[in-house]
């Protein structure tokens, strides 16, 4: 599963999206390579959600090109994206809280033994694989039988990400995975994201509005503003302060500050 680092996985070229007369995205250029974390930053309503929905197959782009491994694609459903290894982990849609950890991990892809109608869950093997997959990524849960809802927010995100990787994700789209988390829990997730990219070689699209979080794990950055890419830079090209400045609105914010005279 490990892929050549730097091998380009997905590329958007001049992609636009309109809902009726409203242009939500205009002329987006973005590429994600294996083993790299591409951070997409932006304010509320900047078009982040639409962008990841296009990548994940929930929406189709109106114009421009979307290529996976160099081939043009136009997904009709998230399933088609998933079949090419493009997997989205949504903040609230990842897991079923009352279901035990191992049942969540294999939900929809359960292993069974025996022949129908006597096919039964291969509980022992699923628990072992879950345990292994979580340990490989440095996540420790007390008891795989505990409901996922009892894990901390950070751990829940990690379990969802580990599951996506275990089931063959090559491109992971993480929608604000740290938005609802405290400092320590965010650290757990960020560490895990960076580890997933480096060790499993997955390409990560990390959506966030926190420039500090982005700079900790990002190899490249894209700031989205009113449906357009405002800044596209590699890590070497800017400092965390640049990122914060641009993210906060740059010159616009400065003039506002000036106006308010403080």
């Amino acid at each position: 599963m490990t892929q050549q680092k730097g091998h380009p996985l997905i590329r958007l070229t001049d992609v636009s999206k309109s809902f009726g007369p409203i242009d939500v995205l205009r002329g987006i250029n973005l590429d994600v390579a294996a083993g790299e974390v591409c951070c997409v930053l932006g304010d509320n309503g900047a078009g982040k959600s639409t962008l990841i929905n296009i990548i994940a197959g929930l929406h189709q782009h109106t114009s421009g090109r979307y290529t996976v491994d160099g081939h043009d694609v136009r997904f009709g459903s998230p399933r088609e994206a998933l079949d090419l290894g493009i997997s989205a982990v949504y903040q609230h849609l990842a897991l079923v809280p009352l279901l035990p950890v191992w049942r969540n991990f294999f939900l929809g892809s359960e292993l069974t033994r025996g022949v129908w109608p006597f096919a039964r869950l291969d509980k022992a093997q699923m628990k072992e694989i879950t345990d292994q997959a979580l340990q490989n990524m440095g996540i420790v849960v007390k008891d795989l039988e505990q409901p996922v809802g009892t894990l901390s927010g950070g751990q829940r995100q990690c379990v969802a990400i580990a599951r996506a990787i275990h089931f063959g994700a090559r491109v992971l789209i993480l929608d604000e995975p740290t938005a609802a988390l405290g400092v320590k829990q965010s650290g757990v997730v960020l560490k895990y994201i960076s580890r997933a990219a480096q060790e499993s070689g997955v390409g990560v699209v990390f959506i966030t509005h926190n420039p500090h979080h982005a700079y900790m794990v990002g190899d490249s950055f894209a700031i989205l503003s009113r449906g357009e890419i405002d800044l596209r830079a590699r890590r070497e090209e800017l400092s965390v302060d640049d990122l914060i400045y641009r993210m906060a609105g740059g010159a616009e914010l400065e003039s506002l500050q000036h106006e308010m005279g403080r």
Partner: peptide, 8 residues
């Protein structure tokens, strides 16, 4: 094992 954060 009661402390279940990943960095421990």
């Amino acid at each position: 094992a009661s402390d279940n954060t990943a960095q421990q």
